[in-house]
């Protein structure tokens, strides 16, 4: 079937097999490989992208289901000259990534969280990350980074 998806602001249109999962569509057809597959059971969150601005696990969504929708991946966050967006900067400043495999999903989940709850408590941040697993960082610096991104957004306002 044909699916037309606006990915990171650019309209894409492709013929795909009906069973194509969104994550494979993004990686193998659209050619954006930042989004990773970590578990297959919508547990680990490595495949998190934004669909119409909300975090979803792209390994558990068919490309066909988001036909006509807007999808944003990690590749769509930085500015035109490659400058990091506030969440990306906060992750770097706080050493919130080690191997980097969970990072694309983690950053997108965090982005979605702050859109819905701009001033989360630490407990709220931790609860919101329960579907994003990381084996390297112990989550400590990820939580710090998100709290700090929320604060800097506050300061900028």
């Amino acid at each position: 079937m044909n699916v037309t998806i606006t990915v990171n602001g650019e309209k894409t249109s492709h013929e795909v097999e009906d069973r194509t999962l969104l994550v494979h569509h993004l990686r193998d057809v659209v050619g954006l490989t930042a989004t990773n597959v970590g578990c297959d059971t919508s547990t680990c969150g490595a495949c998190t992208v934004l669909v119409n601005g909300e975090s979803v696990k792209s390994c558990t969504v068919l490309a066909a289901q988001v036909d006509g929708d807007e999808v944003q991946t990690l590749e769509g966050l930085a500015g035109e000259n490659g400058e990091l967006d506030p969440m990306q900067s906060a992750f770097r400043e706080h050493h919130a990534l080690q191997c980097g495999f969970c990072t694309p999903g983690m950053v997108m989940a965090a982005t979605s969280l702050l859109r819905e709850n701009p001033h989360p408590t630490e407990e709220e941040v931790r609860a919101a990350l329960k579907g994003n697993l990381c084996r390297c960082t112990g989550y400590h610096n990820i939580v710090q980074a998100i709290m700090s991104a929320a604060e800097s957004a506050e300061g900028a306002r």
Partner: peptide
């Protein structure tokens, strides 16, 4: 010192084996 590895990992993502083209 913040990591030199990170800008790439945070923008295009790393190049894991499955990403090799």
């Amino acid at each position: 010192v913040v990591r030199t590895e990170d800008p790439r990992l945070l923008t295009t993502g790393a190049q894991y084996l499955e990403d090799l083209r």
